[in-house]
Nucleic acid binder design. Structure first.
Length: 152
DNA sequence: GCCAACGTTGGC
DNA sequence: GCCAACGTTGGC
C-alpha cells in the first residue's frame, strides 16, 4: 500500500511556441515528454504523485512567467519518445527494458486571467527564495514550497 | 541574437 | 576522476 503524504508542488517550464498553457487546455491532459535532464527526471520519476500541484511556466517569452495551474495526473512511466528514432527527443541510450527517461501526465487546471511575470515574482517579497527567481535557474522542473504555491 | 550559466561528453 | 570543449537553456 502506498504511503500517503502531503501534496507537493512543482513548477514546470515550457516554451509556449513548443507547448503552451492553451495547448494543455485544449488537450486537457498530456504526457510531459521530452525531458532530458536527470534532475528533472528524478523529480518526475521519484517524487511526483497524482494530485500534486503544478505551476505552468512559460519560458523564452516576453515576458517569461507563470501562465496557470496544472496538476500531476498519472504515475511516472517511461517516456516513449526516447525510443522513437524519428522523434527529436530520441535517445539511443534509453532501452525499452531499462528506460532512462520517465514522465508523468499533466492535466490542465486553469489559466490565469493575469499572467504572473518573472519580474513580478522577483519584486514580491512573498516569493523570495523561489528557485525560478534565482539567476541561472535552468532546471525545467523545480520543486515549489506550499507557501509559494498558495501565494500564487 | 547575445551570452552567462549550467549540464554533458570524452580524452587523458 | 579530472576538466576542457562543447551544447543547451533562457533571460535580456
Amino acid at each position: 500500500m502506498e504511503k500517503t503524504r502531503d501534496k507537493k508542488y512543482w513548477l514546470m517550464k515550457s516554451e509556449p511556441s513548443d507547448y503552451s498553457i492553451d495547448d494543455l487546455k485544449r488537450a486537457k491532459c498530456e504526457p510531459w515528454d521530452g525531458v532530458r535532464n536527470y534532475q528533472a527526471r528524478n523529480f518526475m520519476r521519484d517524487e511526483m504523485r497524482v494530485g500534486d500541484g503544478v505551476l505552468f511556466y512559460h519560458s523564452s517569452t516576453d515576458p517569461p512567467g507563470i501562465a496557470g495551474i496544472a496538476k500531476v495526473c498519472s504515475k511516472p512511466y517511461p517516456d516513449k519518445t526516447a525510443f522513437d528514432k524519428s522523434d527529436k527527443h530520441f535517445d539511443p541510450k534509453s532501452k525499452k527494458d531499462d528506460p532512462t527517461w520517465y514522465l508523468v501526465d499533466v492535466c490542465f487546471v486553469k489559466k490565469f486571467k493575469n499572467f504572473i511575470s518573472l519580474n513580478e515574482l522577483k519584486a514580491d517579497p512573498r516569493f523570495e527564495g523561489m528557485m525560478v527567481t534565482k539567476k541561472g535557474s535552468r532546471l525545467s522542473i523545480q520543486p515549489v514550497s506550499k507557501k509559494h504555491f498558495d501565494g500564487i
